[in-house]
Design a protein around this nucleic acid. Sequence first.
DNA 1: TTATATTTGTCCGTATGTATG
DNA 2: CCATACATACGGACAAATATA
Lengths: 137, 137
Amino acid sequence: MIVIDPYSPEPVYRQLARLLRDAIDRGEYGPGQMLPAEGRLAQIYEVGRDTVRDALDVLRSEGRVDTTRGARTRVRADQGKADFDLPSGGRVDGRMPTLDERERWGLRPGVPLLEITSRDGAKKVVPADRFTLVVPE
Amino acid sequence: MIVIDPYSPEPVYRQLARLLRDAIDRGEYGPGQMLPAEGRLAQIYEVGRDTVRDALDVLRSEGRVDTTRGARTRVRADQGKADFDLPSGGRVDGRMPTLDERERWGLRPGVPLLEITSRDGAKKVVPADRFTLVVPE
DNA sequence: TTATATTTGTCCGTATGTATG
DNA sequence: CCATACATACGGACAAATATA
């Protein structure tokens, strides 16, 4: 069963990212479940470990998996999202946090920030993986 | 002038990312302007090219710079944002696009998606670097 | 226009540190 | 304490795209 084609115009690390993402979507790796170790994946797909890391970087930046040093990469479990009531007449912008903001608020990779500006200029920032914004009736 | 400390608990690539981010914020590299080439940065700061790439990855994932193969890394210029009127009673979620969505819509790295769900279940997705959502009065 | 140099993208290897199990 | 596994950092090589002469 050949799955990775080194001669494809699609880079190997992207092919691998796609394979793993599809496997997650098919439920082969459920939420909270571990993927094979990086070295193991490198053996299985016959690629370098750096290529495996590039592929996992893609999934991390998409917010699909979490990696803990020493442990392995796990499929990110959906957290329950709370509602955030938007102020009428307010404005919403989305952006990625800086590294400092990530550490300060304990944000995982691939989680955007939602920036809500009220009419009086007051700003609130909430992580997109924990809140759904609700538009008033 | 020593700026990078290899013995610091802060990884070298993060120190370099911080240095470059601060230089951009100070205006040393203005919007649209080019940063030094990767190999040049490696020489200047006396680190490996891999480390420079890791630092630039940080800035790309924050949406601060854009890199074109063969050309160099440029400071991202703010695009004008259009208003998007939110439907009353609707809901807003933020997430990062997959690689496929990035290519399909020509999205640059570090740009979140804003997903608007109307009360009837219809969904609209807009890139966060081109739209500000407006809450109705 | 053509050819050359520059620059980034990808891929591989090795080594060491550090956290987990 | 030990083995495993990820994070960081160095290096080299070649391909592909851009910029320059």
